[in-house]
Amino acid sequence: MPRRVWVTRARPGADRTAERLTALGYIPLVVPLLEVRPLDVRLDLDGVEALAFTSLNGVAAFAALTPDRTLPVFAVGDATARAAQTAGFAAVRSAAGDLTALAALIRGEAPGCSILHPAAVEPAGDLAATVGPAARVRVVSVYETRDTGAAPPALWDAVLLHSPRAARAMPRHLAGGIAVALSPAVAAALSDQAFAALHIADAPTETALLTALGKPGPAV
C-alpha cells in the first residue's frame, strides 16, 4: 500500500494537500510540477452580473486585483466556494463537481446573465463553450501556470495529479508507483506512462482523490 505520496500541484494548494495526507497517515512529498504566477491586469467589471471560478488560484488572483466583493459567485466545487467565502464574497453557490456541473448551475440559475470567469492563461476547459448561449461568459486571464521542471522525489509510492496540466508536466517514462488522477481527463494525459497502477477519483474533488489513493502502508 502507498505511504510516500508525491504531491505535484502548485503551492499553496500543495501544502494544504500535504496537511491532509499527514493527517491520514501518509508521508507527503511536496515537489510541485507547476507554479502559479498572478498577472497584473486591469479588470473591467462594467455590466458584469456574476463571477465564475474554476480554481482556488482564480479566486486568489482575482481577489488581489480588486476589493469588490459584491458580485455573486458560482464556484466549480466546494473548496473553491470556501476560498471565495474566505476572500469575502457573501453570495456563493457551489456546483460541487466539474466544469460541466458548473455550466449546468449557471444555465439553471443565471440564464441571460453576463458572467466574468477569472481564469488561467491556459484554462483546463472552455467554460463559455460549455455554458453555451444560455449566459454570456467572458474569460479574463488573471494568472498563469508554468512548469517547474522539477525531478521526481528519489523514493515515492504514489503520485497525486490534480489537473491535466500537471499530468502533462510529469517527467516522461516513469515506471512503477501508483498514479491517482482527479478525473478521466487527467488520466488521459498519462497515457504514455508505465505506472504500476492508475486510480481515478470517483468525483473531481480532493476528498475523492484521497479516497482513490487507498489506505497508507505500514511505516518502514
Results as ranks from 00 to 15, higher is better:
Ala52Arg: 08
Ala60Val: 05
Phe53Trp: 00
Phe53Arg: 00
Gly58Ile: 00
Val36Glu: 06
Arg37Lys: 09
Ala50Cys: 11
Pro38Gln: 04
Phe62Trp: 06
Leu33Tyr: 11
Arg20Trp: 08
Ile27Arg: 11
Glu49Ser: 12
Asp68Arg: 09
Glu49Gly: 13
Leu56Arg: 15
Ala23Tyr: 08
Thr66Pro: 01
Asp68Pro: 10
Ala64Thr: 03
Ala64Leu: 09
Asp68Trp: 07
Val41Gln: 09
Arg37Ile: 10
Leu43Val: 12
Leu33Lys: 07
Pro38Tyr: 07
Leu39Thr: 02
Val48Cys: 12
Pro38Met: 07
Ala23Ser: 10
Val48Asn: 14
Leu39Tyr: 13
Val48His: 11
Val41Arg: 12
Leu21Pro: 00
Asp44Gly: 12
Gly58Glu: 03
Gly47Tyr: 13
Thr54Trp: 14
Asn57Ile: 01
Val48Ser: 14
Ala63Asp: 05
Ala60Asn: 01
Leu51Met: 14
Glu35Asn: 10
Asp44Val: 11
Val48Met: 15
Leu33Cys: 09
Leu39Cys: 08
Ala52His: 05
Ile27Glu: 11
Tyr26His: 07
Val41Thr: 15
Ala52Ile: 02
Arg42Gln: 15
Asp46Arg: 15
Arg42Lys: 15
Arg20Ile: 12
Arg37Gln: 13
Thr54Lys: 08
Pro38Val: 07
Ala64Trp: 05
Ala23Thr: 12
Ala61Glu: 00
Arg37Asn: 06
Ala60Gln: 06
Pro38Asp: 05
Leu33Val: 06
Leu29Glu: 00
Asp46Leu: 13
Leu21Ile: 06
Leu33Gly: 11
Pro32Trp: 06
Leu21Ser: 08
Ser55Ala: 09
Arg42Trp: 10
